[in-house]
């Protein structure tokens, strides 16, 4: 286990019905770096993402550790695992298990500091751009019903803070002119950027981007890669990115993990990946 890593993935496996989608995936994401997850279609990239972000539960033995917000978070436990035999002789573990069964779930992963975007945009299309960003800041807003109804000072202050933060990120992603537009009416490229901005509003330490450049034109794509680099350099965000655009990947990634048939095929720097015969075979087929 690498102590400097923000995310450690160990023995991640998952089955759907009888099909083994992932078997024993191991890799780590170093802090404040850009790690790319690449591989041919159907290699299991998005499945890895869904396991990391808590939409799928990894199979037995999977261990996902996120070292963020000054502690080490067990991402599998948060989803509410089934009871184990040793829980019944260990009351604290039992209580914890029940707690996660009742209140656990995907949302805890995000609260631990891991935010994600989706391959197909999942914006709140009928809400305005600012509102999209405010929803993402739900946890830090003043939520007391009474304070909200009576519009107390701390309620208004917390709303003001949230608006400021939203506008900071809008400016960062060059969306500030769109603040009060309906999200669903933005052009595709802006929707993609808005989704990243929304993820950033949850104050993550690790950002997982699922094909952020898909469907963008070369200019937009270049702009996006610059923004991702700025996220790493200016905000010390660690980024895990799935992308098919190899130019973009080779340009921005510090570290690349190659998946094939649900297994890690190769793990190294862009230069190493470019020269690896294994990776070339997987992509182009063996001669």
């Amino acid at each position: 286990m690498d102590n400097n890593a923000i995310l450690n993935v160990a023995h991640l496996n998952i089955k759907f019905g009888g099909i083994i989608a992932l078997k024993d995936i191991n890799f780590h994401v170093p802090r404040a770096s850009i790690t790319a997850l690449i591989g041919p279609n159907g290699a299991g990239k998005t499945t890895v993402f869904n396991c990391l972000t808590g939409f799928y539960k990894g199979g037995p033995g999977s261990k996902l550790t996120l070292s963020s917000k000054n502690k080490s978070n067990n991402l599998v436990e948060m989803l509410g695992e089934g009871f184990k035999l040793q829980d019944f002789i260990n009351p604290p573990a039992f209580v914890k298990r029940i707690y996660f069964k009742m209140f656990g779930g995907t949302h805890l992963v995000c609260r631990a500091g891991l935010a994600r975007t989706f391959q197909n945009n999942r914006l709140f299309e009928e809400m305005s751009v600012v509102e999209n960003l405010l929803v993402a800041q739900h946890m830090s807003l003043e939520k007391s019903l009474l304070k909200g109804v009576f519009q107390t000072k701390d309620y208004l202050e917390s709303q003001e803070r949230a608006l400021d933060k939203a506008h900071d990120w809008l400016k960062f992603f060059k969306l500030d002119k769109r603040a009060n537009d309906i999200a669903g009416e933005l052009p595709y490229g802006e929707q993609k950027r808005l989704e990243i901005a929304r993820a950033m509003c949850t104050s993550p330490e690790l950002l997982c981007l699922d094909e952020p450049a898909a469907g963008l034109n070369p200019a937009e794509s270049a702009e996006l890669s610059e923004l991702i680099i700025r996220l790493r350099d200016e905000h010390r965000i660690s980024v895990l990115i799935i992308e098919h655009d190899m130019h973009l990947v080779m340009k921005i990634a510090d570290h690349i993990v190659v998946l094939n048939y649900g297994e890690v095929l190769f793990d190294g720097t862009p230069a190493e990946v470019r020269n690896s015969s294994k990776v070339i075979d997987a992509y182009l087929g063996k001669e």
Partner: peptide, 8 residues
């Protein structure tokens, strides 16, 4: 029945 897998 078969358990449903959520589509993300």
């Amino acid at each position: 029945g078969k358990p449903e897998v959520e589509k993300v």
